[in-house]
Structures are given as structure tokens and as C-alpha cells.
Amino acid sequence: MDSTILLFLVQDGVTNGALYGLLGVATVLVFAVTRIIFVPQGEFVTYGALTLALLDTGRVPGTVWLLLGFGLVAFVIELWMSRHELDARRIGKEALAKIVLPCLIVAATFWLAPMKLPPWANLLLALAIVAPMGPYLYTIAFRPVAEASVLTLFIVAIGVHLSMQGLGLLFFGAEGLRATPLSSTSLPVGPLVITGQTLSIYALTLVSMAALTFFFNKPLFGKALRATAINRLGARLVGIRTSLSGSIAFVLAAIIGALTGALTAPMTTIYYDTGFIIGLKGFIAAIIGSLASYPLTVVAALVVGIAEAFASFFASQFKEVIVFTLIIPVLIWLSLSSHHVEEEE
């Protein structure tokens, strides 16, 4: 093995690691606000990537119908959940957010898609389609059990993953798709070539990490979101709208997921289950980051990415075995250290 291969492996590892890091950061974010171990994070990646790829070809992606359906179901569930507090204004507000908004997005897609907009405009449109699905999904699947244990929420999340992956197959088919790159610039660094695409991934990962770390630790609003996860009733008693907190976490998670997908789609072919596989690695990083630290999650993601790159070079057969075995010692360590906190209570 020479230094060029080494550099290639590192670059490959860092690029994948940055993607895992993005998803890991989103997983931490969702957990910090809702206590949900959000397995379906990767499905947003798939939805974002395939929506963008279809828009690139001038077609209307099937996700618009999904958006409409999610909005409608969420509307009904929202009204049912808040039936003791309903008035005309509230109903109007909910209808606006969950019925009118998706209708507008669908209409816009039908109008804009055939025009074959430039890649960045398609990216924005894809985001507009996928992002609202986050809060709708929260309302449909998680709000009715928001008080349940972490474990129950985890199993619910797995149910959501099964459904979303199945829906992905339904709307996109088993064929893989690729999207047009956002920029075609590339920068030779020694033997390596760094593309604008990978640079934007690095940038996005770093910005998300820094912004989320700041947001959840400094402004009162960020602390309020965290407080929702720590004690839901306590949060309501100080005037925090806990369902809003959940929706905010999910919209951010959906945006991060869809962006990750949109940035990956031009580099590799995306299938209906690709997102889940990438998401799982992000998930590992988030667990190593103890579902709490954004920087630690990103570092862990880079380690996972690089370990994977080297494993695929030296023992490509056992790449997955190695990566998934990696987290077991971390879990043991985390479990032991969290146990002491419980004892002090």
C-alpha cells in the first residue's frame, strides 16, 4: 500500500464520514428533544435524493402524494389529540399548516417540474417537499405516545422505518437514480481531486454541528427544546408547547436528511433502501456520541467512515461486521456510566 492509496482511502472515509456525521447529528437532535431513537432518519435521505433526481428529469416525484397524504392524516390526528382545546382559530391554523401548505407545494411542483429548473432550484423544491413530512410524521406516529418510554418510542420508530421504506419502494420503484451535480468545479490537491460537491458536504456537516451545539446550549429557546425531552410535563408547566418542540426537531431532521440525500444523489446511485444503510452508520456515530454530543458524533462518524474505507480495502468481506462490532464496547461503556447517574437519583 502506498501513500496515494492511503490518501484516497482517507478521503473516501472522510467524505462518507461527513455524510454519516450529518445524519448522526440529526439523530442526536431528535433524541435531545423527543427521546426518540429515530431509526427512519435515513428514509429522509432516500426521499430527498430520489425526489431531486426525479425533478432533474422533469418529472413530478411521487413524494408529493405522500406529502399530501401525511398532511391529511396528521391534520385528523392533531384535531383528535387536541379535541378538548379546539376552537375555530385553532382548526384554521392546523388546516393551513397541514392541508393548505402541502396543496400549495404539490401545485408548485406540478407547475415547476416540467420547466427543468437549474439544480439549486430543484434542490430547494425537493427540500420543500420533504421537510414538512418530518413534523407530519411526528404528529402521526409519535405524538400519541410522546410520554412512552425510550424503548417503546424506539420500537415505534422501527415501525415507522418499515412503513417509510415500503412507501419509498412504492413511489420510486426498485430502480436506482442519480441526480445532476450542483456544481462541476473540482480542485486538485496533490493526487486527490476534491469536488465542489464533497466540499459542500464537509461544510454542511461542520455548520450543522456548530449551529446545533450553539442552539441547544446558549439561547433559552434551544434549552426549552431540550427541556421537553428531560421532563415533558415540567416543560408544559413553564409554557413550552411540547408538540411544537417535537415538530421543530422533526422539521430540522427532515431538512438535514433531505439535504444529505440531495448532496449524495449526484455522487452515487440511490435506491429505495440506500438511505437506511447510510442512516444506520449515522446512527452508530450518534450512539458513540452518546446521543448527546454533536462534535463527538461527528468525530465518531469520521472514525466510522475511515474505518470502513480501510476495512473495505483490507477485508472488504467483513466491512459491515467490523463497523457494527465497533459500537458494542461503546454501548457497554455508556451503559456503565449512565447506571451511576440512575443510582444517584
Partner: peptide, 9 residues
């Protein structure tokens, strides 16, 4: 029929 958060407010 006001939610908790409104009553706090």
C-alpha cells in the same frame, strides 16, 4: 378549553 401553555401565559 385553553391548553396548559396558554394558562401559564
Amino acid at each position: 378549553r385553553r391548553p396548559v401553555e396558554d394558562r401559564v401565559g
